[in-house]
Design a protein around this nucleic acid. Structure first.
Length: 437
RNA sequence: GCGUCCAUAGCUUAAUGGUAAAGCUCCGCUCUGUGGCAGCGGCAAUCAGGGUUCGAUUCCCUGUGGACGCCCCA
């Protein structure tokens, strides 16, 4: 034994150690209550809103995102993890859920099931960008999508409502919902042109970034933080005034539905989404508070043209996503407690070698009867074992020794009061359940 | 992709151009049939590579990772 250890120690110097890959994080047991809570809330919401859970692959053809999320989008242009397989396929780690869900909808004939199809998913997405507050390279998105059926604003409102409920369930209060409409194929080009014209006349007053944006993504001009640009914005044409009749009607109804369920919102004409496939309704939800500002915690919108972009027919669709890590950051920042699932446990300790063996079997039996049992059977001294029980905050310890084995009993010790009594093994499970209540 | 700051035991910190100190945690003993307290003991670190130097953990460069801002975004 010692010689093996020595060998290992000798080798140690040659062995390389590893750090985690940039932007990738371990989720340790201490954080699992947050994840359990979020997962539970998401699944409950899915059930109660009648959404079916879907799991799509992490890897998709890179073109699925290139063709949908668009040339103007950094998410696809700069931030996508791509790889070429040995067979020569160009694949990508999904940077978001929507195109994959849309693909699955087409491929699996969900368009032939009752419409619309309401789907939700939760899982990792990847973006190769500089990590900072509320931004990881691998993070977890909670995604709800309504695909197909008629183009009804009630679905837009429903998606918003789900995420509004999600935040409420997580006790994240004072969230701010910003909504906007970015029109359709008919009215958006017209507005864009007017916007560009307006800014071209003031090009000298724009910041360097915005001069660039004028070419690449004019809608983003409205979102600049430079003072000069903010001033210009005041007189810039407002999209909401320029929407076509259908779009403005649609938007108005979305807002009416929101009023109906008393979800407060702010109109924000600066709100444009970074992905090309959006149309009409776009929205974001922010957690209020300057400190620990993690950016939008929910974002989404309508994407009626996406399905066409991947070779399907025109299919109305609306969806949104939330970043689980950002939600957790808000929970932690506000010190909102998540109550872990009840895990009332007992602790089984042994005294002596024979008892250790019998304790191993007793553990198995108790567990099979639904009792959560903790132990430190590998420790020899009883006091060391009870020390562990104490550290774990357990209130009931079971002690099994020679004497108890002969008597077919177990000592049940109340660690809070320090009182204890012998209980017959056959009555043990029942007695434990009674005391744990 | 650009910029700023950072890197010493598991954690929080200390110190130094001559290989590192402490608190907490962890492990053990006092206490192999009874936990919390206490005492004692133990494990355990200079992120990696290069340079300057007699000598680097310390100074310099690069890499890697972290924090934050910009771009962008959940």
């Amino acid at each position: 034994m010692p010689s093996t250890m020595e060998k290992i120690n000798e080798k140690k110097e040659e062995v390389r150690t590893f750090q985690s890959v940039k932007g990738m994080h371990d989720v340790l047991p201490a954080d699992q209550p947050y994840w359990d809570k979020i997962t539970d809330v998401v699944n409950d919401l899915g059930r109660s809103y009648g959404f079916g859970k879907i799991e799509t692959p992490v890897l998709e053809f890179a073109d699925l995102y290139n063709k949908t999320s668009g040339e103007g989008s950094d998410v696809v242009q700069k931030e996508m993890y791509t790889l070429k397989t040995k067979g020569g396929d160009f694949l990508a780690l999904r940077p978001e859920y929507t195109p994959g869900v849309a693909r699955a909808y087409m491929e699996n004939g969900l368009s032939r099931l009752g419409q619309p199809q309401k789907l939700y998913a939760m899982g990792p997405v990847f973006r190769h960008e500089r990590p900072q507050l509320g931004r990881l390279r691998e993070f977890t998105q909670i995604d709800f999508e309504t695909l197909g059926g008629v183009n009804d604003p009630i679905y837009d409102a429903e998606i918003i409502s789900i995420f509004w409920d999600l935040l409420a369930e997580l006790k994240i209060k004072n969230s701010i919902l910003k909504v906007n409409s970015i029109g359709c194929r008919v009215c958006r080009p017209i507005y864009k042109k007017q916007l560009v014209n307006y800014y071209k006349n003031h090009e000298k007053e724009l910041c360097a970034d915005c001069v660039e944006r004028l070419q690449t993504n004019p809608l983003r001009l409205l979102d600049c933080k430079e003072e000069g640009c903010i001033k210009l914005r005041e007189k810039a044409p407002n999209f909401l005034d320029k929407l076509c009749v259908t779009c403005s009607g649609h938007f108005k109804e979305v807002l009416e539905y929101l009023d109906e369920v008393t979800i407060p919102y702010e109109l924000d004409n600066r709100l444009v989404r970074g992905l090309d496939y959006y149309s009409r309704t776009v929205f974001e939800i922010y957690a209020e508070g300057k400190e620990g500002d993690v950016g939008a915690i929910v974002a989404g919108g309508r994407y009626d043209y996406l399905m066409e972009m991947i070779g399907g027919s025109l299919t109305p669709a609306v969806g949104a996503a939330s970043g689980a890590e950002r939600l957790i950051a808000v929970l932690k920042g506000r010190e909102i407690a998540v109550t872990p699932k009840s895990s009332k446990r007992v602790f089984l300790a042994h005294a002596g070698d024979l008892a250790k063996k019998k304790a191993f079997a007793l553990l198995k039996e108790l567990r099979s009867r639904g009792i959560i049992v903790s132990e430190a059977l590998a420790r020899e001294s009883l006091s060391a074992q009870l020390k562990v029980a104490d550290k774990e905050g357990i209130s009931i310890a079971l002690i099994l020794g020679q004497k108890e084995i002969y008597e077919k009993s177990v000592i049940l010790r109340d660690l809070r009061t320090g009182t204890q009594e012998a209980i017959l093994v056959e009555k043990l499970a029942e007695e434990i359940k009674k005391r744990l209540k």
